[in-house]
Design a protein around this nucleic acid. Structure first.
Lengths: 209, 209
DNA sequence: ATGATAACTTGTCAATGTCAAGATATAATT
DNA sequence: AATTATATCTTGACATTGACAAGTTATCAT
């Protein structure tokens, strides 16, 4: 959060609004989002965000786009120094999940087509880049393990699994909190690794897709 | 949707409100939900839903619970007359996806912990039943294919995959609409089958979880 | 120094969810 | 059958919200 403004101009309101929005989303989920509350937290009047983002959808879309940017960065970094394709895929899965846990506000929006504008060039750019990183990693695995597999489908499935993993993680967290259960959950890194092993074994065993 | 009331009492307002809510959710997604709009569609005043559901969260929770009920029913029916565990798992995956497509309004809420009350007994009952059906099916597959696999983890992963599949289906649908793309998408049934094959192959190849 | 403009504030409005009092008609009791 | 209780709804009010438009501030360009 930027320091409080002492002049008319905030100084970096664009940044402050995205940060405030991500914080609010992290605390209350998308259902508790309020543009006025974001403005209050950024220390400006309720209509100030309109200049930077147009409407509420504009701000939410910018947060989602930044989420995909974080994801892309995390994916690239996770693969550095890792040469084995199977290990790279595992690293990506872990990176995705860790990004989501580190940025819950961003993550809560990235699949929300009812809240985010599909026309945003920034959103498309970053979501496409993230997807393509995954596509390349899946292709490298397939080449080594089973060149006959359909790479597009395998990538979609891989993406689906990780999205679903986040949903299940939310489910398990919410249920654990509601029930006070003391059942130890596997760590998300463990689950991510099981996921990527499943995917690799699935690709290996796949006759066709 | 029930027929319009001609007396003071609606006759089956509880049912009409759930139907109206599911329709509205299906049209606008959760982000476009409005309790007053639901009441308008049901032909009653804006405060009438409070008697049946308390607040907006109460209505949304009831819709989500009904979604899990639909899911459970679809799962059970899909397995009838199917004896092979692997085929049963494929049937479940398809049933889940088909239920979600048939009931988009319900489906849009089933993972939304920011909108739904975890304290609802009805929600827990139906979500637990659905989960247990899947658990049994996964256990049957594991017993045949690889008794060493951790059934709880495999079930969670299976659940995660299907949740993620729905997310990806939404993604692909939204992106196709936004870009006017003419790339043919695989049918969701095809993808569900690939999923279950992946899961089964993954379980088969799994050393441990 | 002056004018243009980006960046904000203030004010207004319609729509929203919630709450509480009031009204209706159905069920239960006498 | 008449009266009372109660489930079920309506009306009205209020605070909050997103959006829009006019007004204000201070920074930039000339």
């Amino acid at each position: 959060m930027s320091s409080p403004k002492s002049t008319y101009h905030h100084g970096d309101l664009h940044r402050a609004l995205i940060d405030a929005a991500a914080d609010l989303l992290s605390e209350r989920g998308a259902g508790g989002f309020s543009l006025r509350e974001v403005a209050r937290r950024a220390g400006v009047s309720h209509a100030a965000p309109a200049h930077h983002f147009g409407d509420a959808t504009g701000l939410l879309t910018a947060v989602a786009a930044e989420g995909f940017q974080h994801l892309h960065t995390a994916m690239i970094e996770s693969m550095e120094g890792v040469s084995d394709p199977v290990d790279r895929l595992a690293a990506i899965a872990r990176a995705y999940v860790e990004m989501a846990i580190a940025h819950p506000g961003h993550s809560s929006l990235m699949g929300r087509h009812d809240l985010v504008s599909p026309d945003s060039q920034l959103l498309r750019e970053w979501s496409t880049r993230a997807y393509e990183s995954l596509h390349e990693a899946v292709a490298a695995v397939a080449e080594e393990v089973n060149p006959e597999v359909d790479i597009d489908n395998a990538t979609r499935l891989c993406w689906a699994m990780v999205e679903g993993l986040l949903q299940v993680h939310d489910n398990m967290t919410a249920m654990a909190e509601a029930s006070g259960a003391d059942t130890p959950l596997p760590t998300i890194g463990d689950v991510a690794e099981v996921f990527s092993n499943l995917i690799v074994d699935g690709i290996r065993g796949s006759d066709s897709a």
